[in-house]
């Protein structure tokens, strides 16, 4: 099922980002192929969100080069999708669910364009897929956490990009929304798209993602879950704040973070 393209979805070379001259992300180099669901794991303050924002050009970087599908980021803006952290959204903004999802199409409209019937159809399909058509005319504050997250995922779908970045999509959502998000992630992967997800939950990392990035300012490890999700690498990422147990089947269980 996976697209047999050899061009990597994302290449990051030697990225360093600082706040007030203190480096938050240091010397990260990565190449992510197409058709993967990649989790970014790391303790608080490890620079997970910062790395994503740096890659997307939302923050000024001290150093580093980003290539998307083998070209400049500016050349493939339509392909790159960003789902912000729920906390960073202004929920009191006078805008309806429908409006927000339609915003996913603005990238293709230019400065003067108006959304076409086709744009509206795509937005409706995205809402249907996330099960929120019934909420289309609600103002965005009048919803639960899970519904709010679905709105932003519908917007991401409407953008029809091939490389998606999601910042903590599982925070504060109900179990059914979490399951819907995971299903969506895997569906996207099967269509050959690449999704990079910032996550802080170690428990679920193994089943949700194909590959993991372990980050603590510097890149600790990047690779398939089986190779990376190991006690030595995890404790290197999280420092001493991590306990490793063995359960009755002699399986490693990791608690902490």
């Amino acid at each position: 099922m996976r697209a047999a393209t050899t061009t990597p979805a994302l290449e990051v070379r030697d990225m360093t980002i600082s706040y007030d001259r203190e480096p938050v992300v240091e010397g990260v180099t990565l190449t992510i192929p197409q058709g993967r669901v990649v989790g970014i794991l790391g303790p608080n303050g490890a620079g997970k969100s910062t790395l994503i924002k740096g890659v997307l050009g939302l923050l000024e970087t001290d150093h580093g080069e980003v290539r998307v599908f083998g070209g400049e980021l500016s050349g493939s803006r339509q392909e790159v999708v960003y789902v912000p952290q729920r906390g960073s959204v202004d929920w009191d903004f006078p805008v309806t669910v429908k409006d927000v999802v339609l915003m996913g199409r603005y990238g293709r409209l230019g400065l003067f364009g108006r959304p076409s019937a086709e744009d509206r159809r795509i937005a409706w399909e995205a809402m249907a897929k996330m099960g929120i058509e019934a909420l289309a005319d609600r103002q965005i504050s009048e919803m639960s956490g899970g519904q709010q997250q679905r709105v932003f995922l519908a917007r991401a779908l409407a953008q029809e990009g091939r490389l998606l970045f999601m910042d903590e999509p599982f925070v504060g959502v109900d179990a059914s929304t979490e399951a819907a998000i995971v299903e969506l992630l895997h569906e996207m992967r099967d269509q050959g798209r690449t999704v990079v997800v910032v996550n802080h939950d170690l428990q679920t990392a193994r089943e949700y993602f194909d590959e993991l990035i372990l980050l603590n300012k510097r890149l600790i490890a990047y690779g398939p879950v089986k190779q990376v999700f190991t006690a030595p690498l995890l404790s290197k990422t999280y420092g001493g704040r991590l306990a490793v147990f063995r359960d009755h089947d002699d399986q490693e269980i990791i608690v902490g973070a």
């Binding site: 939302l58 803006r77 912000p84 960073s88 903004f93 915003m103 400065l111 108006r114």
Partner: peptide, 22 residues
């Protein structure tokens, strides 16, 4: 009136607006 959509997006979600190259 002319720039309603770019203005709306840049006010609501500057990050997405920037990502779209606005």
């Amino acid at each position: 009136v002319l720039f309603f959509r770019p203005l709306q997006l840049a006010t609501f979600d500057p990050a997405l607006a920037a990502a779209f190259g606005l």
